[in-house]
Nucleic acid binder design. Structure first.
Length: 270
DNA sequence: AAATTCTCCTGAAGGC
DNA sequence: TGCCTTCAGGAGAATT
């Protein structure tokens, strides 16, 4: 399930292969994604030169002079560079055919999207109200303290709210809260500034490490070359319910928080 | 306004 | 072996 590190791994993997190339053909085999692939997508971009592949949160932005293709991998999406004659298979919904290679979008569960936005791209409804990037200076203890002030919802839910900070999904929210020693169920407004500062640092560290490892492969995430990520070996709590806490040895607890699997140590996280 | 629940979807995993 | 049920979850939309 792609989170920010997986999306960044994808962006870094595909961009050198397609930047500065002309997009010669858009092939939509199945437009039924989270939102329909725009029927005018081909007309917008065919024959145009791709400038850069950017990322905002978990959105990939394929930037042309006049606008951007906005892509999201949802739960099970992936984008790979393939040869023009590579046979496609079930769930390979969209191909962006460039001069030298094809970018292939695959998404079995179809929770992702492929959209078009004429510049300025950040005015798109999906992008306009996003919080700061977690690895930027704008995500800092003061920002998080302000976001948490007076809030009664669980800190984990707040951390996963893209209006507060983008890119922190379920896996890394669990991991960051463990690293910071904070119980995921604790009300956001009832955490000291100092501990929120620790949490900011934990988010940055866990995301940075995951990017260095090429992301986390749980079920079917593969990067742009079809390789899995290796961060799974580093996970401390996610997927380890019932197993021993790496700090104190007590069995880790699993609970549900906003329909999300939440794993933590009752002793180490308060 | 804030918080919670619902919704989309398919493959994997577990039970019998 | 095979069919059935349950579960996973990104995040916007709908509801409380």
């Amino acid at each position: 399930m792609p989170e920010l590190p997986e999306v960044e791994t994808t962006r870094a993997g595909i961009s050198p292969h397609i930047e500065a190339q002309t997009l010669v053909n858009v092939m939509v085999r199945d437009s039924r994604l989270r939102w329909p692939v725009p029927s005018d997508l081909a007309a917008q971009v065919e024959g145009r030169r791709l400038n850069k592949v950017l990322r905002r949160g978990k959105y990939l932005l394929f930037e042309f002079d006049h606008g951007c293709i906005i892509g999201h991998l949802g739960m099970t999406g992936s984008m790979r560079i393939v040869a023009h004659d590579e046979p496609c298979s079930y769930h390979d919904h969209v191909d962006l055919v460039f001069e030298k290679v094809t970018l292939r979008y695959r998404d079995p569960r179809r929770f992702g999207c492929i959209l078009w936005q004429t510049h300025p791209v950040m005015e798109h409804a999906l992008l306009a109200h996003l919080g700061p990037e977690p690895l930027s200076e704008d995500f800092n203890p003061v920002h998080l303290l302000k976001a948490c002030k007076g809030k009664k919802l669980a800190i984990k839910s707040l951390l996963m709210d893209s209006k507060k900070v983008v890119g922190v999904g379920n896996i890394y929210a669990n991991e960051a809260l463990f690293m910071a020693g904070i119980n995921p169920h604790r009300q956001a407004g009832r955490i000291s500034a100092q501990r929120l500062g620790l949490l900011v640092g934990a988010c940055k560290l866990v995301l940075t490490q995951a990017i260095e490892q090429g992301g986390t492969t749980l079920r079917n995430f593969v990067d742009s070359d079809g390789n899995p990520g290796y961060f799974k070996q580093r996970l401390q709590v996610y997927g380890r319910a019932g197993y021993a806490c790496t700090q104190c040895g007590q069995p880790l607890i699993e609970s549900r928080l906003g329909q999300r699997s939440t794993v933590y140590c009752k002793l180490c996280q308060r």
